[in-house]
Design a protein around this nucleic acid. Structure first.
Lengths: 330, 330
DNA sequence: CTGTTAGCGCTTTCAA
DNA sequence: TTGAAAGCGCTAACAG
């Protein structure tokens, strides 16, 4: 007899339906033919009891959880949120569940989260690494779990990567700005050291080279001190021949830049563009140009790379570059 | 011998350390005294193998996963994101893991997500319900899992609730607006039917009553069609004696309102206030007033209610109201 | 078409 | 202070 308060198990269902637990399992999973009469009995009993599979037991037995872990730093930009949504959608379509965990850019937390995902027997991991992801990457590598690193390109060739083609995106952006008569640019990155930024810088340099002296630029880092940044920015704009357009590295940088410009009351004097398409971009006057990533494409590439490994048709680590588009507002 | 490719288990560690698996378990969990010599051996072996507990097995055996599920509609507003962060923090501090799943306001998905959480043997569920959460609530209720419903007050007295005191927040906001000479208000809710909105409306009505005719207001719903909303808003502002201040129900509504005002080029003519404190609030001219929820307090109350049930010191369903604060910008 | 049963990896009781 | 072993709920191989 089922003890009150205990959750019903498969054997409770079996007893109530008058069949073996194997039969119940087969009915529930549809993995072998069952007479419709028995099927009905089982379904009825299961329903009456409010039976729900215990996925801990299922995972333990199957040696697979049919889940994929997504470990990101944050979901505070539209870009990341949409990416997560797209991945969730694709996972669902493929019969997997996506479980999301956040690191808040803390390598210790990142390691803990990744370990927790691995403990839960996820079938694969998508990692958007923190700034110092070595420990987490090491853990993933040791576990030999299928994995894809997104949005950061790899110094580490044990992993597969999906990234935005930042070099190209920057070149497109610069070309556009030059087309609207900008000749002096300021690029503000959140952090000059991350590879993403370095690729953008390379793109910027390339365009400067092609322009042969007609284009001048500066690159600075916003850092974490918003107030200091605002001061620095003001000074830069007061120098002779100041930049006529600012390119922000992400929506957070764009936001603090815009605030600083508002405070200095010279937001009319300088144009703004940003990587990462913030939802408030439309609010800005003059209109802001932004670089928007095609999430669905990005997520599909990520899934494909993951499935390759999960299904064992994996040969070597690969890197896929996704082209981003320019959003030009009037 | 350990088969290549298999993940190391506790018995691999036991063999390598030359002790029983029970001892390994006790070392790893610290649940009984172990001689320091044995402890070292075990730790060394575990480390060398890269052992990681299989939490499916652990959950199955312990009948508890030490995780709490958070099921929300979306994380696209700052308010929800911060709430999730705060809950995650508190869960971690208490030795639990928070797993987040999203419903995108789809009752079918909501039910599926809740069922999945229950299947995973979560020890508790925090639910921010969709507009039609009956099925999901029923599932939770039947499972008799500890649960707290947040941000929607309860018609259903089987559940405990934590909500913002929206009536009071609205009254505070309206009093402030009246203090700055506003007499005609427009309240734009994402959805007029949710209880949250109804409470705000009640607060608005109460202030109108207290003002005895000196305050007039209108309440509309933004709905899902941004363009249609923009048109409607423009018409409302072109009528005789138009509203002098708009109150938005959340950051998403505030954003589309601000966009519409910009497009109509009359953002100077009307003041704006919003529930939910968006990160771009500083960009707005004239300055926007916002209602900010003390996330940490909110999350703590939620956790407390959940723990009461998880620890069995639960008497009856309770509702906790949290007071929000006004952020006034210059 | 259906049933019996081993065993997934772990915790914990009982015994030494 | 340590070990042996039962058993959590489920799946799938094997037997009928």
């Amino acid at each position: 007899m089922r003890k009150a308060g205990r959750r019903p198990t498969i054997s409770d269902v079996a007893r109530d339906a008058g069949v073996s637990i194997a039969t119940v399992s087969y009915v529930l999973n549809g993995k072998r033919a069952v007479s419709s009469q028995v099927r009905e009995q089982v379904l009825a009993a299961s329903d009456a009891l409010g039976y729900r599979v215990n996925s801990a037991a299922q995972t333990l037995r199957r040696q697979s959880s049919k889940t994929v872990g997504l470990c990101m730093t944050t979901v505070s930009t539209v870009y990341l949120r949409e990416l997560a949504n797209a991945l969730d959608e694709i996972a669902t379509e493929n019969g997997y569940e996506l479980v999301q965990v956040l690191t808040r850019q803390d390598p210790a937390r990142e390691l803990a989260r990744v370990n927790s995902l691995l403990s839960r027997q996820v079938d694969g991991i998508v990692l958007l690494p923190s700034l110092h992801p070595q420990a987490a990457l090491e853990a993933i590598s040791r576990s030999s779990a299928p994995s894809v690193v997104v949005d950061r390109i790899g110094e580490d060739d044990r992993f597969s990567y999906v990234i935005v083609n930042n070099n190209k995106a920057m070149q497109d952006l610069v070309r556009h700005l030059m087309g609207t008569e900008h000749r002096r640019l300021l690029f503000v990155a959140q952090n000059l050291d991350v590879v993403t930024t370095r690729h953008r810088l390379a793109g910027l340099e390339e365009q400067a080279r092609l322009a042969g002296g007609a284009l001048r630029y500066q690159a600075i880092q916003r850092g974490d001190d918003e107030v200091a940044y605002a001061t620095r920015l003001r000074h830069l704009l007061e120098q002779p021949d100041p930049p006529t357009a600012i390119i922000a590295g992400n929506s957070s940088v764009a936001l603090s830049t815009w605030k600083a410009l508002l405070a200095a009351e010279n937001q009319q004097a300088v144009a703004m563009a940003t990587f990462d398409d913030p939802d408030w971009a439309d609010l800005c006057q003059p209109a802001m140009i932004s670089v928007r990533v095609p999430f669905r494409t990005f997520a599909e590439a990520t899934w494909e790379l993951l499935m390759q490994q999960m299904e064992g048709r994996f040969d070597a680590a690969r890197t896929i570059q996704i082209d981003a588009g320019l959003v030009v507002r009037m």
